[in-house]
Simulated assay, not measured.
Amino acid sequence: MPPLTDRLTYAVGDIHGRADLLARLLDQVRADRVARAPTGRTLIVFLGDYIDRGPRSREVIDQLIAFADDPAFESRFLLGNHEDAMLDYLDGRISGLGWAKHGGDTTLRSYGVEPPKEESRTAWAARRDAFRAAVPPSHRAFLERCELSVVRGRLLFVHAGIRPGVALEQQDKRDLLWIRSEFLQAERDDPWLVVHGHTPKEEAYAGPGRLCLDSGSYLSGRLTAAAFDGADVSLIETHGRAPRRIPVRLAG
């Protein structure tokens, strides 16, 4: 297989409030980078879903903002469907009740706001002002800067996947954040290795033209990154002692 990228690149899967795992994984990524001894800054892409479900969403955002200042890395942060829901709640576009059922209640608690006991739209809407006041402006700005996709060489980084047969510039935001079966089960002829999260298993897994790094951190206790070095792809796992190679292939 030809090189996927001409620059050492890392990607980090869905974190979901597991600040403990993120701290461990970032140490492993830094050590892996030193071992590879690249020249210049190294690209690292975070695939979204930093918040919800796990207990320490606020701390995760603090860690990511701090990591962005590391001069050894060019950090890029993708928007996940969970961050999109948090912004919708803050801006009043949703009541928050549906978000709560997908882990938004744990995010409120991480910011020191107790979720309403009553499961109603009215109760969640009434809690919005307290949550707005609890979210630091730097966290709001971080979420608003998150991107929908990043391209490097033959690598396409998105949160959930892409709509097969649709050009990247014409992809719908909802597909990039939410798509599952239409992407996972499709036979594609585009030139990308799509690196994504959103659909978890207990370990990262590859399919034709794609690599999923969502290892279900909040339930499995496993957080995964991938290192792309030329044509070589290796997984860096919080539950693993050393990086391990994973075979991948392009779609087209």
Rank of each mutant, 00 (worst) to 15 (best):
G96I: 00
A126D: 12
R58D: 06
V135E: 07
G54F: 00
W99C: 01
R244G: 07
F46P: 00
P164R: 09
V248P: 03
E59D: 15
L143K: 07
N81W: 11
V194A: 06
R7I: 09
A204P: 08
G104L: 02
A37N: 14
W124G: 02
D62T: 10
A133Y: 11
M1H: 14
L155E: 04
I179G: 02
P243A: 07
F228G: 00
A125K: 11
Y111V: 06
P136K: 11
G207Q: 09
L90H: 12
P38I: 07
V60P: 01
L64H: 00
Y205D: 02
G96M: 05
V135D: 06
T238I: 05
Q171D: 11
V29T: 08
D70L: 07
P2F: 15
L156R: 10
D14I: 04
G216E: 14
L211C: 09
S181N: 14
I162W: 08
I179T: 10
V29F: 07
H102I: 11
R140F: 13
P136S: 09
Y111K: 08
E237G: 05
L64F: 15
G230A: 05
L193Q: 04
L156N: 01
T42F: 02
P137H: 13
E114K: 12
V29H: 05
P3M: 10
D70Y: 10
G40M: 11
R93E: 15
A231T: 13
I44M: 09
T5M: 03
D172C: 12
H16M: 04
R109M: 13
L235F: 14
S220Q: 14
V60M: 07
S181T: 13
A231I: 08
L148S: 10
R163G: 06
G17S: 12
Y50D: 03
L211G: 01
S57W: 02
P38L: 06
G48L: 03
D70N: 15
R30P: 02
K101E: 15
P115Y: 06
I65E: 06
R30T: 13
E114F: 09
D14G: 08
L25C: 01
Y50M: 02
G216Y: 13
G80W: 01
L177F: 11
G96E: 02
Y205H: 05
R109K: 11
H159I: 03
R174H: 15
L47I: 02
A68W: 00
A11W: 02
A19L: 06
A226L: 04
E187A: 11
F142G: 01
E119S: 11
G40C: 07
R163I: 05
F67G: 02
G252E: 08
D232A: 12
R241G: 14
E74C: 08
R7D: 10
A68R: 13
Y10V: 01
L155T: 03
L90P: 04
D49A: 00
L250P: 02
R210A: 00
E118S: 11
R174T: 15
Y205K: 05
G112I: 03
L184M: 13
L219C: 10
V166A: 06
E182D: 14
M1K: 13
L223M: 14
T224P: 03
P208I: 14
